[in-house]
Design a protein around this nucleic acid. Structure first.
Length: 735
DNA sequence: AGCACGCCGACT
DNA sequence: GTCGGCGTGCTC
């Protein structure tokens, strides 16, 4: 019996277990450490895996164990704290560990590329400098070409040579053998993170900011603070002060933002005030840049690491603080694969590292407010607008009293005219792309339906097509009713139609429409925004895309065409989302000199939601939502989890969910139960049958305990080996 | 996931 | 005859 250690490796595949390997043939004396990447034979191919554990024995028969082919990292690329977060996420979301590791690594590292760029250089020797190419390498044209290149430049980096003379290593060997060139390894660290000019200094904090800072500064251990204040209340100043303090102690700061494209000013402001460049991580960066940034975070060269949700996994040498800006934002929730919440993982990470986590929002999520109420988080409110400008005025336009023509009520048009005449800009929101949301038959009232799914088709006039916003199907516009052959007409308002209507009402002004259709072309978005930001455009029409980030200089009026869909949405988070959206948009209207105005068209002006919002603001709406959810029907959704299962066989998925339900019902720990039968009808996609089951529990811990107890029991079932499953804790939407 | 193996239908 | 469709099973 051999005493060889067993290497337990995470492989990027939808398989939740680790795979056992024998150490590499050559390096038995220097065993790789957990966190190193390994090249391993896996089935019929080779895979890059990450070593997670070194064990003494394996459950796998020795004869079936294969040997690691190559150790890719001399040092762990993921260190113990990074691995701890990965293990937590895999455990908490019941997601295959190999895939979680995959989320935590930039693509090149996932594919087995080296952490550090090749720092090799081919250099000319003293002899080489005088060698005559034709003579030295008479019968080797490639060697002579390489020599000529070298004589021109003296030395060349490996990457440079890869570009100039692919396959250069072969002739290089010849040159080295002749003593005219040498291959050297360049030393020294890769270029450090850039610096930025310090362009601003800290203003004197107002009393509220000072109070928040006093509560937060100086504490270096784990705690969660919810910094809650409207736009302009000076949250960023508080972050800045804490960031500065942390960096001054030689520790790194991780800042998470919802979408990087929407926060250029935020990034610029941080950099300008801190006098250093942020290491920015997000998905639209080229791989090479992302890798370099990841490396700078890992090495500690980057004091400030800033990124979107996946940055929550960024390794750091010496982390001291985590900030989650706009913590309520839905983009922190990954919607496929590992369905994690970057905000929740940030908190888990802060706890593991024992460092503070600061959440910021003008409109905190209900679950964070709930944690504050329980006393788990500390709530710090910044009430005043730092600049002293008056908060925008929210007003309802009752569509019953002012029937709209072409979707616009008279007071809205009048207000628009007034604001434009006074030099303001107007933003008109309508959350419906296309010309009209329906194409209806004038004689039989049938609506055009999608042939691929069960949604209605949306009319797109600019492209002359019907499009399904649900599944993406498209077809030419029907010229008659599919059911009875009668005449058809578009029904309802979309952004295209609204653009036309506004153009008729305001013929002297150019209307800019900004939605995902109008901005599809590269640069179109930037162009439209540039015109708006310069103040050239007075009227902008758009969808949600417009609601975040950009600062329009003269924006004084915001019009919300249809708020009612948020009011009666099937989404159980509908009302708080609506309130969050309205507050966010309102925060952007108005300048120092002029009070902003928000006009909301509604056919349900008597709905209690409006009363709460207009008299009590977000605070009141949130309190209502919280009470409602703590009450009965819907518990706080931090205690909800969706079990998602899929298999190639319908019967497997069904039985799996059935057994899960029975297990949960048999062990009603802390009130855990399953809501509904198999909550959503089974769906077949990509050749797999998918189903889900909704769990509810009185406490988060209990919920997790029940879910965790499912695993061993389900894995006893032979058929369960064919089922892939994971948990969506805190689902963003329920169907 | 990726890949192989196997078992049936329509082709040079 | 065999090429290739997908249904099924496996990866240390």
């Amino acid at each position: 019996m051999s005493r060889e250690p067993i290497l337990r490796v995470a492989i990027n595949a939808p398989l939740s277990r680790l795979f056992d390997y024998l150490p590499p043939a050559d390096g038995a004396n220097s065993l790789p450490r957990p966190g190193c990447r390994l090249l391993v034979p896996f089935g019929r191919r080779r895979q890059t895996g990450v070593l997670l554990e070194v064990a003494k024995t394996s459950d796998v028969p020795a004869a079936r164990l294969k040997r690691v082919q190559k150790v890719l990292d001399p040092e762990p690329i993921l260190r113990e704290p990074d691995l701890r977060l990965i293990r937590f996420a895999s455990d908490y979301y019941h997601h295959p560990i190999g895939e979680v590791v995959g989320c935590a690594l930039p693509a090149p590292l996932r594919q087995g590329k080296p952490l550090h760029e090749s720092r090799q250089r081919l250099k000319l020797t003293a002899d080489g400098a005088h060698a005559v190419p034709a003579e030295a390498v008479r019968r080797a044209p490639r060697q002579s070409a390489l020599l000529e290149l070298l004589q021109r430049d003296g030395s060349l980096a490996a990457e440079e040579l890869d570009r100039l003379l692919p396959g250069w290593r072969q002739p290089a060997r010849g040159l080295v053998a002749k003593g005219v060139a040498e291959l050297v390894e360049e030393l020294g660290p890769p270029p450090a993170a850039g610096s930025a000019q310090k362009t601003a200094t800290a203003p004197v904090p107002n009393p509220d900011q000072a109070a928040a800072l006093e509560a937060l500064s100086g504490r270096r251990d784990f705690h969660v603070a919810l910094l809650d204040g409207i736009t302009g209340s000076g949250k960023t100043e508080v972050y800045l002060s804490l960031i500065q303090e942390t960096i001054a102690l030689g520790r790194q700061v991780l800042v998470l933002v919802p979408e990087i494209g929407l926060t250029p000013q935020f990034v610029g402001r941080l950099e300008g005030r801190l006098g250093l460049a942020a290491a920015v991580l997000h998905s639209s960066l080229p791989d090479s840049v992302r890798l370099a940034t990841w490396r700078a975070a890992r090495s500690g060269a980057a004091p400030l690491v800033l990124g979107t949700r996946s940055a929550v996994f960024a390794p750091m040498q010496n982390p001291g603080l985590i900030v989650v800006d706009e913590e309520h934002d839905g983009s922190y929730k990954q919607q496929e694969g590992l369905r994690y919440s970057a905000r929740d993982l940030a908190i888990a990470r802060g706890k593991q590292l024992d460092i503070p986590v600061v959440l910021g929002s003008a409109t905190p999520s209900i679950e964070s407010l709930s944690r504050c109420r329980e006393g788990a988080y500390r709530r710090l409110t910044l009430p005043a607008r730092a600049g002293g400008a008056a908060p925008p005025l929210l007003r309802l336009v009752d569509l019953n009293r002012h029937p709209p023509t072409e979707g616009l009520a008279r007071p809205v048009v009048e207000a628009m005219r007034r604001h434009i005449d006074e030099g303001g800009q107007v933003l008109v929101f309508l959350n419906r792309r296309g010309y009209a949301p329906t194409l209806i038959c004038r004689s039989c009232s049938a609506v055009a339906e999608c042939r691929r799914c069960d949604a209605r088709m949306t009319v797109h006039a600019r492209s002359g097509r019907l499009m399904c916003h649900h599944c993406g199907a498209a077809r030419p516009l029907d010229d008659s009713c599919a059911a009875c052959g009668g005449p058809v007409a578009p029904l309802g308002q979309g952004t295209e139609r609204l653009e036309d209507t506004l153009q008729q009402r305001f013929p002297d002004f150019a209307i800019t429409r900004i939605d995902s259709d109008s901005t599809r072309a590269r640069g179109a978005m930037d162009q439209a925004l540039a015109a708006a930001i310069s103040g050239q455009t007075r009227i902008m029409v758009g969808t949600q895309i417009l609601s975040k980030g950009h600062h329009f200089p003269d924006l004084t009026l915001v019009v919300v065409i249809n708020a009612d869909q948020g009011l009666f949405s099937t989404d159980f988070r509908g009302t708080e989302r609506l309130a969050q959206g309205l507050i966010q948009v309102a925060g952007r209207a108005g300048r120092e000199s002029r009070q902003g105005e928000v006009l909301i068209q509604t056919a349900f002006a008597a709905h209690p939601f409006w009363h709460e919002l207009l008299t009590g603001g977000y605070e009141r709406v949130a309190a209502m939502a919280l009470e409602e959810r703590e009450d009965a029907a819907w518990p706080p959704f931090s205690r909800l989890a969706l079990l998602r299962a899929s298999s190639t066989r319908r019967a497997d998925t069904h039985r799996f969910l059935e057994i899960a339900r029975e297990l949960a019902d048999d062990s009603p720990q802390d009130g855990t139960r399953v809501l509904g039968p198999v909550a959503a009808p089974m769906e077949r996609r990509a050749g797999r049958y998918r189903g889900q089951l909704l769990f509810q529990s009185r406490t988060r811990r209990a919920l997790h305990r029940v879910l965790a107890s499912l695993r061993p029991k389900l894995e006893e079932e032979p058929f369960a080996r064919r089922v892939r499953w994971s948990i969506d804790v805190d689902p963003l939407e329920l169907f």
